Simulated scan of single mutants.
Amino acid sequence: MSLSIPLFLKPVFKERIWGGSALKDQFGYSILSNKTGECWAISAHPNGPSIIENGPYKGKTLSELWGNQPELFGHYDSEKFPLLTKILDANSDLSVQVHPDDVYAGKYENGELGKTECWYIIDCKENAELVYGHHAKSKEEFAELIKEGKWNKLLQKVSIKPGDFFYVPSGTIHALCEGTLVLETQQSSDTTYRVYDYDRTDETGKKRELHLQKAMDVSTVPHEDADTQFEITKSNASVITTFVKENYFTVYKWEINGRTDFSQELPFQLVSVIKGEGILTINNEMYPINKGTHFILPSNVKQFSIDGDVTAIVSHP
């Protein structure tokens, strides 16, 4: 019989050409350098598996638990842990990119999952924007504008502010832009096809690789804006916003102000605290949580409460 306890996770950090110091400045993380772009907060991907920080599984990776303790995840039917939660610090513009779906990635990327993702804007500079979609009406026009480098004509830019949410299905041309801090919920995949990288060079003077043919293969043309209808549920001490419910994940924002009781009938939930602090209580055991805490609620946690002033992004497959 496995214990009914949360699984707290130690994040993995990644340096990126576009990274900065916001993960240290805003979350207090001990980061690699002032070019740290990604916090892989809840991950069982081989390129950056999280480590359990508490209880009998302390020191094990999430991927080990997924393989060896399937009861913790409600015997969820998937060979791979399906989701990956990241916090991204876009200190400068990310490359314009696109991700494949499961079929294409499975065929051309050694059985990797595709990558549908979504973003919650934690913070951004004034007048920030991002690339979401494009203006080409046909594959021919799409290829021609890329070939001619007419990026301003091709790319669709969207103004953003803190609290915005974007659903980014595979096939969507996209890019986070300078001065943006986001929580990303995605399929557990590390496959990205770069379309344009601003002709940047790394410290050795080399440009990063582009993947134009694969990008043309997988891009949705013409672009389709994702239709997301938010659902909001209010109680005395909480506001729960459901951002998206679709094939790969459901994503919520929990805004808790005071004690809120929850019941869980799901295989498991991923929880990332992005603001505030409070106490998570399970079976009369109390666990402090605060901004930057990430944990999984396994399937055997049927009842729990959170007391405090806490905002969290929560997901499940």
Rank of each mutant, 00 (worst) to 15 (best):
I121K: 02
S138A: 06
S138K: 07
E109G: 05
A136H: 09
L145G: 14
F142G: 00
G133P: 00
V96F: 10
C118V: 09
D102H: 10
H135W: 05
D102N: 15
A136V: 07
G111M: 13
A143F: 12
K115R: 01
Y120C: 03
N127A: 15
E109N: 07
K139T: 09
D102P: 07
E112F: 04
C124G: 11
V103R: 11
D123A: 10
V96H: 13
C118G: 09
P100Q: 06
H135T: 12
G106W: 13
T116E: 04
E112G: 03
V131C: 12
N127F: 12
A136Y: 11
A128Y: 00
N127Y: 13
N127V: 11
L113G: 01
Y108A: 09
E129N: 15
E129S: 15
E109R: 05
V98D: 00
G133S: 10
D123I: 00
C124I: 10
A136S: 11
K115W: 02
L130H: 00
A143S: 15
D123E: 13
N110L: 14
V103K: 15
N110D: 09
A143W: 02
I121A: 04
Y132I: 10
D123W: 04
G111D: 07
A143L: 08
Y120M: 01
D123L: 01
E144R: 15
G111C: 11
W119V: 11
C118H: 05
I122K: 06
Y120K: 00
E141T: 07
K139H: 01
G111H: 11
G106I: 14
E126C: 10
D101T: 06
L113T: 08
W119P: 07
W119A: 01
V131M: 06
T116R: 00
S138I: 01
L130M: 14
G133A: 10
Y104P: 11
H134A: 07
Y104W: 14
E140S: 12
K125L: 15
V103N: 14
A143N: 15
I121L: 05
H99M: 05
I122L: 13
S138E: 06
E140R: 10
T116N: 02
W119E: 00
L130I: 14
G111N: 12
E140D: 12
G111S: 11
Q97A: 10
E117C: 03
H135D: 04
H134P: 00
E141V: 03
L145W: 13
G133R: 05
G114R: 01
E112R: 07
G133D: 06
K137Q: 15
N127P: 02
P100A: 07
E112V: 11
G114L: 11
A128E: 10
Q97K: 05
K107V: 11
N110I: 04
C118S: 14
A143P: 11
V103A: 15
A105R: 09
K115M: 03
K107D: 08
E141Y: 01
G133I: 11
Y108E: 12
Y120W: 06
L130P: 04
G111A: 05
L145Y: 14
A105Q: 12
D101W: 06
